[in-house]
Amino acid sequence: MLTDLFSNILTTTSSNITVTQLFWILLTSLSLGFLVATIYKYHTQHTKEFVITLSLMPTLIAVIILLVNGNLGTSVAVAGAFSLIRFRSAAGSSKELLAVFLATAIGLATGMGYLLLALTFTLLLSLIIFLLEQSSFGKPNAKFRYMILTAPKGFDVDDFFQQNSHNLWNKMELVCIHYKKKTDVLVMEIILELNHQVSDQDILNLLLQEGVIDLVLHQQIPKKKRL
Score class of each variant (00 low, 15 high):
residue 5 L to D: 02
residue 7 S to A: 13
residue 11 T to K: 09
residue 13 T to W: 09
residue 13 T to V: 03
residue 14 S to V: 04
residue 16 N to H: 09
residue 17 I to R: 02
residue 26 L to H: 10
residue 26 L to M: 14
residue 27 L to F: 14
residue 29 S to D: 08
residue 29 S to R: 05
residue 30 L to E: 10
residue 33 G to R: 06
residue 35 L to V: 11
residue 36 V to W: 02
residue 40 Y to L: 01
residue 41 K to R: 10
residue 46 H to N: 11
residue 47 T to L: 09
residue 49 E to C: 08
residue 52 I to K: 12
residue 55 S to H: 06
residue 55 S to K: 05
residue 59 T to R: 02
residue 60 L to R: 07
residue 61 I to C: 02
residue 64 I to T: 10
residue 64 I to W: 00
residue 66 L to Q: 03
residue 71 N to L: 00
residue 72 L to N: 08
residue 73 G to Q: 03
residue 76 V to D: 07
residue 78 V to M: 10
residue 78 V to S: 07
residue 81 A to D: 03
residue 82 F to P: 13
residue 82 F to M: 12
residue 83 S to V: 07
residue 83 S to R: 01
residue 85 I to R: 02
residue 85 I to G: 04
residue 86 R to D: 11
residue 87 F to I: 15
residue 90 A to P: 11
residue 90 A to Y: 11
residue 93 S to C: 09
residue 93 S to H: 04
residue 94 S to P: 04
residue 96 E to K: 01
residue 96 E to S: 02
residue 96 E to Q: 08
residue 97 L to T: 01
residue 98 L to F: 09
residue 98 L to C: 10
residue 98 L to G: 14
residue 100 V to H: 00
residue 100 V to M: 12
residue 100 V to N: 02
residue 101 F to N: 05
residue 106 I to D: 01
residue 108 L to R: 05
residue 110 T to C: 08
residue 114 Y to I: 00
residue 117 L to K: 01
residue 119 L to H: 01
residue 120 T to M: 12
residue 123 L to G: 12
residue 124 L to E: 06
residue 131 L to R: 08
residue 131 L to M: 09
residue 133 E to N: 15
residue 134 Q to V: 05
residue 136 S to Y: 13
residue 138 G to P: 06
residue 144 F to L: 15
residue 147 M to E: 04
residue 148 I to M: 15
residue 151 A to L: 08
residue 151 A to W: 05
residue 152 P to S: 03
residue 155 F to N: 01
residue 155 F to V: 00
residue 157 V to P: 00
residue 166 H to S: 15
residue 167 N to V: 13
residue 169 W to V: 04
residue 169 W to R: 02
residue 170 N to P: 03
residue 171 K to Y: 13
residue 172 M to Q: 13
residue 174 L to R: 10
residue 176 C to M: 13
residue 176 C to L: 12
residue 177 I to R: 09
residue 181 K to M: 12
residue 181 K to C: 11
residue 189 E to S: 10
residue 190 I to W: 06
residue 190 I to H: 02
residue 194 L to I: 04
residue 196 H to D: 15
residue 197 Q to T: 15
residue 197 Q to I: 14
residue 199 S to T: 15
residue 199 S to W: 09
residue 200 D to W: 10
residue 201 Q to R: 14
residue 202 D to T: 06
residue 203 I to L: 14
residue 203 I to Q: 02
residue 205 N to S: 13
residue 206 L to R: 09
residue 208 L to S: 13
residue 209 Q to C: 04
residue 210 E to C: 07
residue 212 V to Q: 00
residue 216 V to C: 12
residue 216 V to T: 14
residue 223 K to A: 10
residue 225 K to E: 07
